[in-house]
């Protein structure tokens, strides 16, 4: 006899990368079921506080309700939410942080993490580009240290990761939504200045808007800053 299956896989992918004094977190906006695209815009990345942004991937209904309940600070273990979470933001010491979680709650701080339908495409790419895996140091060169890439490089990595995943995975596409969280006092010129956006590395069709601070009172000049970046992905 068939048993009601309370879960579904709604595709899509999320990813986050930590920098020295910023972090970037992103997700595509497609929601699908098997071969059907349910909608081309469903949010997967949610700003939670002034310094933390959460990305949720897996069973969409659980994802929505998970975010709703995180905002109410509730806990649940016996009937797990079928969701993979990535939390990105700024730590108390001012460094960019990425935490990844599995559905039952075990978590880890990392320099980067990809999750969701295209995890197997995203993660090896990040391992190579962020952790410098399988790269050999030129004789006499500075040693590789993960988590020190400039923002512009991280942005183009995220865009490349998602455009590539879109090409190779049917459940990824439609749109890319990214959030950048910046430590207090950090200049945003490398994101908002005209020259930065004219640079060769700057991804095409990228729109940038600054988010309103999420509530916490912050002194002028010492505030966290959050930016929302979006860009179309292929829709096929």
């Amino acid at each position: 006899m068939s048993r009601f299956n309370p879960y579904e896989e709604n595709g899509g992918s999320i990813l986050a990368i930590a920098g020295q004094d910023f972090s970037v977190i992103a997700g595509d906006t497609r929601q699908s079921l098997n071969y059907s695209i349910q909608t081309r815009y469903a949010q997967k990345v949610f700003p939670l506080t002034s310094s933390a942004v959460l990305a949720v991937n897996g069973f969409a209904a659980d994802g929505k309700n998970f975010v709703k309940r995180v905002k109410q600070r509730l806990e649940r273990r016996m009937f797990p939410f079928y969701v993979y979470n990535i939390l990105a933001g700024i730590e108390e010491d001012g460094t960019g942080a990425v935490y990844s979680f599995d559905p039952v709650g075990s978590y880890e701080r990392e320099a980067c993490r990809g999750a969701g339908a295209a995890q197997s495409l995203l993660q090896p790419f990040l391992d190579n580009q962020i952790y410098f895996k399988n790269q050999t140091l030129a004789p006499g060169a500075e040693p590789f240290v993960p988590g020190r890439l400039p923002l512009s490089t991280v942005l183009s990595l995220v865009v490349d990761a998602f455009s590539s995943a879109t090409e190779r995975h049917i459940e990824v596409g439609d749109g890319l939504e990214m959030y950048v969280v910046m430590a207090p006092g950090r200049s945003a010129d490398d994101l908002t200045a005209e020259e930065a956006q004219q640079a060769k590395e700057w991804p095409s069709e990228l729109t940038v808007e600054e988010m309103e601070s999420l509530g916490d009172e912050q002194e002028e000049g010492k505030a966290f800053r959050v930016f929302r970046l979006s860009r179309p992905l292929k829709r096929d």
Binding site: P6, Y7, E8, N10, Q31, L33, Q38, T39, R40, Y41, A42, F59, A60, A61, K64, N65
Partner: peptide, 8 residues
């Protein structure tokens, strides 16, 4: 029935 929602 799964509580799955989307708009379009």
């Amino acid at each position: 029935l799964l509580g799955t929602t989307y708009t379009s």
